[in-house]
Amino acid sequence: MNLFAQAVQWILDPLNYVGVNAIPLRVFEHLAFTLVTLVIASAIAIPIGFFIGHTGRGRGLAVSVAGAFRAIPTLGLLTLVALWIGIGLGAPFVALTILAIPPILAGAYTGFEAIDRRTVDAARAVGMSEGQIVRGVEVPLGLPLLIGGIRSAALQVVATATLAAYIADIGLGRYLFTGLKTRDHAEMLGGSILVILLALALEGIFATIQRFVVPRGVISSRSKVVRVRSSRARPMVNSAVEKGTQ
């Protein structure tokens, strides 16, 4: 408990609010790094996920590749890429983007798949084109699960982005490594607490977004579907699994 008190003291110490190591600066860097990684990973994963979700093609491949991606140790990938392209932000971006892709990809295609096929068939029957079906039906209905995938990716990236400080002068990981190497446990724990707070803030933001993006008509009907025909309650099953990896 004493250690926690020291860590809190470290966080509150005015000395840690000036200079290049100022806490607000490191928090900002950490957040910016996390968001840019999420944007890159989303730009790669969402189109692929939508394609799989809409056509059902390449699903088996995507599941295996995403599974293998999950198993790739971030530390190993980081060191390997660093040896290729040198120090700086490049290697951490590559390693963390790969970390973020599987949950976003899964969120994108399970979002489409969770939609009752009759809804899509109905859209097709009233003469909507495939493009209109994707934009007008599948994307809005699949959005909550997609946001869920991004949310779970965000949580992993924000916690793992500390490893970026292994080879770059960025983020809250700087406190962790300096604390580790100089046996300053208060600094290390203080840095960790900041990471956790940041993760919690992101969680809150994403939970709010998730709430707002559920289309109005879906809210009531979904809970009914879960009740009455729980064997088809796929959205819930998947979101549970998607909470997935660290």
Binding site: V20, A82, L83, I87, Y166, I167, A168, D169, R174, F177
Partner: peptide, 11 residues
């Protein structure tokens, strides 16, 4: 200062 945590290694 740029951290490179490889103990003065190849990187």
């Amino acid at each position: 200062f740029t951290p490179i945590e490889d103990g003065g290694g190849p990187l």
